[in-house]
Design a protein around this nucleic acid. Structure first.
Lengths: 236, 236
DNA sequence: CGGACCGTTCGGCGGGCACCGAAGGGTCCG
DNA sequence: CGGACCCTTCGGTGCCCGCCGAACGGTCCG
């Protein structure tokens, strides 16, 4: 017997954190980029508060979640964008075979709102995210044919529109994130996050419901049309 | 109780495939991009043949591995580059906290050969992979500052050197893959694979041992120096 | 055809872990 | 200070799953 790769134990331990349906449900919920309380996650996952507490403890200990205690509440969120990316990558790998139909009308409605426009951690996804990504590409601001990177005109565009691109640590400026409803990459990374933040700050979109879905406002219709030539009505 | 995200079960099931040390050891071994027999993997992971057989069955059923039966052998390899990328991503996430020292001299030697130059599925990694990636960037053939993409001169370079870039399916032409010894991205994607294949075909490198480590040949020294200005001796 | 080899199936064992309810500590508010 | 609320800790239970050895079927070779 040869010795196993020493990284195997670590890989198995990390994957084990995702390998429980309750913990997976928590991580997917936290993909909206916001902080949730332990109780909210317990209700969302359909388990007792004590069970959720144990799960959150493991996820925090494993470095996947960051916690913040405020009074009698324990707020928890994804530790960083690397963790978010990992959750997205795993979810994207699952999606191909997981094309099941929603069973109730409400779920179908929520599903189609999610497919139309949502956030994916801190950037835009769904048909809206794809439309924006394609528009940037069509305008020569983003290059997808040889990889995934902003062009020099792209850098100038963000600057001209007063959307700051904070180069923080080693997070890439632009990165493709596989959209698991559209099966195509949308813009993520620093630029994707900046654009999403701007869209929310400028009132182009507002969050609907308690999770990731967003809705394009009338002001957003105008802005998307002027800047990108996107007909938001066509996203429905 | 609210219903869980329907993707949670799938995510948990997928992660469960990685969440066992023996299966993780198999997947890491298969990151060399080649096909292994069931028996080789059993010995490598240090378990009975029957145990390995069960694990491989699960990995194949889960779509992570492709199998090919030849005579009395069952050859198995990673299903595609998307799976390889997932294994790499998980391993990269583990690495930060997993900086433990090898315990034997042999392991230390193997470890440093791996750190010097290795393949990562189908592209080059280790100090060699980083050096090539940096050289391409310095020559203006690859752009890393605004994402990760080949430039137009980069496309021409591959063409001029007779290294074909087969645009297959949706695999990106260039992609950054986090190197878990160097903690920086090296070139992956179609271009990374083509370059690695060329390096092996042209005799720049040869595989050493039975796993991922490679060694730069004398011809490789000359080629790397001429094309990229890399001093291979400095990688040691 | 017999023996060596590779892989799979099966029964059984043991450990780990997700789950719950009850009890308790900490925080906020009237 | 008492009660409502949020969360955690603890004991107990049941299930799942990784592991092995033994037996068996298939393949190759002398």
């Amino acid at each position: 017997m040869t010795t196993k790769d020493p990284g195997a134990a670590g890989l198995a331990r990390l994957a084990g954190l995702f390998a429980d349906e309750t913990r997976a449900a928590c991580l997917l919920a936290l993909l909206d980029g916001r902080a949730w309380t332990a109780g909210e996650l317990a209700r969302h996952a359909g388990v007792a508060a004590s069970t959720a507490s144990e799960h959150l403890g493991k996820l925090v200990a494993g470095g996947l979640l960051a916690e913040e205690r405020q009074g009698r509440h324990r707020y928890v969120r994804l530790a960083d964008d690397r963790v978010a990316q990992l959750v997205e990558d795993l979810a994207a790998q699952v999606a191909p075979g997981a094309a099941r139909r929603p069973r109730t009308l409400a779920a179908a409605g929520a599903g189609s709102a999610m497919a139309r426009a949502r956030t994916c951690y801190d950037h835009l996804a769904g048909r809206l995210g794809i439309a924006v990504t394609d528009a940037l590409t069509g305008l020569g601001l983003l290059r997808q044919d040889t990889g995934f990177a902003l062009t020099d005109p792209g850098l100038a565009w963000f600057d001209a529109h007063g959307i700051p691109l904070a180069r923080t640590g080693r997070r890439p400026l632009a990165r493709g994130c596989l959209d698991w409803t559209e099966r195509r990459p949308h813009l993520a990374g620093v630029a994707g996050a900046a654009l999403c933040r701007h869209a929310l700050d400028a009132g182009w979109c507002v969050r609907i419901g308690s999770e990731r879905a967003v809705k394009v406002t009338a002001a957003g219709d105008r802005a998307l049309s002027e800047l990108f030539g996107i007909d938001a009505a066509a996203l429905r």
